[in-house]
Design a protein around this nucleic acid. Structure first.
Lengths: 146, 146
DNA sequence: GGATAATATCATATTAACATGATAATAGTC
DNA sequence: GACTATTATCATGTTAATATGATATTATCC
């Protein structure tokens, strides 16, 4: 559903949302999420450029959320890494597909799209941390070990 | 949403569904859909192996649907080309994510998944040709021309 | 102001999806 | 049975996503 990159971004944002005021190093995030560090670094940098994260260089640097988790919809985190997200594309790949010039699947598919869009627009980071509180930090195995 | 390959498959199936008893050549399909012929050939062959299409070799050969369009849900056409489709994956990429061991997004995302799954399972090819009848064959431009 | 710890960026490798072109296999037509 | 139109398959090319490693830049600490 999400690209690998968008999934990393979302998981990192979720991690940061648990302690919104703390600045976390990329190394810590990468380890906690079992995600390649240099790759994550670039991904987080991209989120910083969109204004969702604040990056600090130098000693004691790292990333943190720029706003409270309840004000950040998933949409904003995922959007930079998906060409689609809000104005989702035509199921049959037509360049233009609207209510006026619909493809064969338009009407039925529209409902599905709207459900998906609503999820990303109306779910905030905070909504997900609360859900997470039910299970305290599921164990993550390191990338290569027994 | 769909991979390019799955989209080709769906469009081809839709085309065949308009005249379910006629056998159409790959060349005709490829031209009608503006899709690379050799690639489509392999894709259709794959659908034939799953039993959705019947392929005939030699002169007067081609492809046709193996069953009436109203008995073929979109799911069956798309499934061979998407690793996901029915048991859609965890939004956060966890290898296991169920009602018992949910990820942070599980409950909210589940609704979205179910809407999508219902669409693919409950919409048949016939449902889409009827919708299409509203617009008679939208013009498709050839791949390279003025 | 040098040492250090962090992000930022560049160069490159890996992989899978997508695509093309050429050839082999098959079956109908004459 | 030769010819031809078709699917089937093989070999290869192209592109974008994903990933890794090395280096540059920045800021803090002493």
């Amino acid at each position: 559903m999400l690209s690998q990159t968008a999934e990393y971004a979302l998981r990192a944002a979720l991690y940061l949302a648990e302690e919104p005021d703390r600045t976390a190093r990329v190394g810590e995030l990468a380890e906690a999420l079992s995600v390649p560090q240099n790759y994550l670094s670039k991904t987080l940098h991209q989120l910083a450029r969109t204004g969702i994260l604040v990056s600090t260089r130098g000693k004691h640097g790292g990333f943190r959320l720029s706003r409270p988790p309840e004000t950040i919809p998933l949409f904003e985190i995922v959007a930079p890494f998906e060409r689609i997200t809000d104005q989702r594309q035509c199921l049959l790949g037509r360049p233009v597909c609207s209510d006026i010039t619909p493809c064969a699947a338009h009407d039925r598919w529209k409902t599905v799209k709207e459900t998906t869009n609503a999820f990303f627009r109306e779910t905030s980071l905070k909504d997900l941390i609360h859900a997470n509180a039910r299970k305290p930090a599921p164990p993550r195995r390191p990338r290569a070990s027994a």
